[in-house]
């Protein structure tokens, strides 16, 4: 399965990873190689096989509805790149 350069750009955009123009071909090549190898899967007939999402057949445990987390904003924001008035700052979002 060959991945085209244009496809690499679409995927990179979905993943929000900037890729320099000159690196696109390289990614196209290595992704094609990985996906080509992954392609082996298609040889197996898995009709009727239930997908396995978790190795153990367990079910979700529930937590009591209690407030257990104190306000530690200053601690949590100590390593934040840009904060003002308790808000995380990002470049202006255009609606």
């Amino acid at each position: 399965m060959a991945i085209e350069a244009a496809e690499v750009k679409v995927i990179a955009h979905l993943a929000r990873i900037g890729i320099e123009e000159e690196a696109v071909a390289g990614y196209a090549r290595s992704l094609s190689e990985i996906l080509g190898f992954v392609e082996q899967m298609s040889a197996v007939d898995t009709t009727g096989v239930e997908p396995l999402a978790h190795p153990l057949d367990a079910t979700q445990r529930l937590r009591p509805d209690e407030v257990t987390e104190p306000d530690q904003r200053e601690l949590y924001q100590a390593g934040a790149p840009a904060v003002e008035a308790g808000l995380y700052l990002v470049p202006r979002v255009v609606e």
Binding site: R63, D65, E66, V67, T68, E69, D71, Q72, R73, Y76, Q77, A85, G86, L87, Y88
Partner: peptide, 28 residues
């Protein structure tokens, strides 16, 4: 509810910004 769907942070309305956001809510 009193606490959030997946964390123990409070859900009360009107708190100061990010005072009711714990590491789970912050995606740490």
């Amino acid at each position: 509810t009193r606490s959030k769907i997946f964390s123990g942070a409070a859900t009360a309305y009107g708190a100061e910004p990010n005072r009711q956001a714990c590491p789970i809510d912050l995606g740490m």
